[in-house]
């Protein structure tokens, strides 16, 4: 479903003599099969967002190639957009001043979703995510938890094969977080939607992901199952301690152990 082959992305920053090239992602390779639920971990500035932007066609890679749902993201941006759903936890993809239900209607037209399919899917999602009470509220007046549920619904109305989530539980309270996780697990299990999830919340990873990838300094530092990840540290260490050791253990420039 997702194929990344030796993808790299560098930026030129600064001006004049201070000009230099920063490699946000270098030589990144991985594949994600249909129906997988993959956690994508990494410290701040490790290259997670850059990877997500490349996968969704917002950024073009400077080297290597990517395929998402069989398409080259930068060349076939609009075709890809119909097959994937994207949620940015830090900002909404909904229309700020529009009531939630109008945002959904717009998405129906933009993604050319059949009216009957749309009705059915919206009813289903509204039920699962409990949207009923704020469907008529403009997005800017929604609480963070409500907005996030709206954003997830918006990303799923066109029934995408791949769902990319960038920190979907950031800032949510305990109850909202549990509800969101429960929903995502069912989505993956029942519909077989492929999910790629970036997060700083290891609870998300423990509850949801069978497979974990860890990126640091733009390189893939670990790729394996949750149990394998735990096994990299001494017995009795919490997941948090294991991950913290992996983050600090990989010095810049030196490739982390596979």
């Amino acid at each position: 479903m997702i194929e990344v082959d030796r993808a790299g992305r560098s930026f030129t920053v600064g001006r004049g003599s201070a000009r230099r090239t920063v490699h946000a992602v270098r030589d990144l390779s991985f594949t994600v099969g249909a129906g997988e639920f993959v956690g994508y971990l990494g410290p701040n500035g490790a290259g997670k967002s850059t990877t997500i932007k490349m996968l969704t066609g917002v950024l073009a890679p400077t080297s290597g190639r990517l395929r998402v749902a069989g398409l080259d993201p930068t060349r076939r941006r609009t075709a890809l957009a119909r097959r994937i759903g994207v949620v940015f936890g830090q900002r909404t993809t909904l229309w700020w001043d529009l009531p939630l239900k109008d945002s959904f209607q717009l998405i129906r037209y933009l993604y050319k979703v059949d009216r009957i399919d749309f009705r059915r899917r919206l009813d289903e999602l509204a039920g699962l995510l409990d949207l009923g009470s704020f469907m008529d509220t403009p997005v800017r007046q929604l609480s963070l938890g409500q907005r996030m549920r709206g954003d997830v619904t918006a990303a799923l109305l066109h029934d995408p094969a791949v769902l990319v989530l960038d920190e979907p539980t950031i800032g949510l309270d305990v109850v909202s977080k549990a509800a969101m996780r429960d929903f995502l697990r069912r989505l993956n299990a029942e519909r077989g939607t492929t999910v790629l999830l970036t997060t700083h919340d290891l609870g998300d990873i423990e509850k949801l992901c069978r497979r974990v990838m860890l990126i640091d300094h733009g390189r893939l530092g670990f790729d394996g199952t949750l149990d394998e990840l735990r096994a990299t540290g001494p017995d009795g260490d919490s997941l948090e301690e294991v991950v913290a050791r992996l983050y600090t253990g990989s010095a810049p420039g030196t490739p982390a152990p596979p």
Binding site: K53, T78, A81, L110, Y111
Partner: peptide, 23 residues
Amino acid sequence: RSGSFDTMLIRPASAFVQMATDR
């Protein structure tokens, strides 16, 4: 600057049309 241009790019429609009609 606000990042909302990125969200226009992940929709299956021309970014120009989305810009022109915004608000």
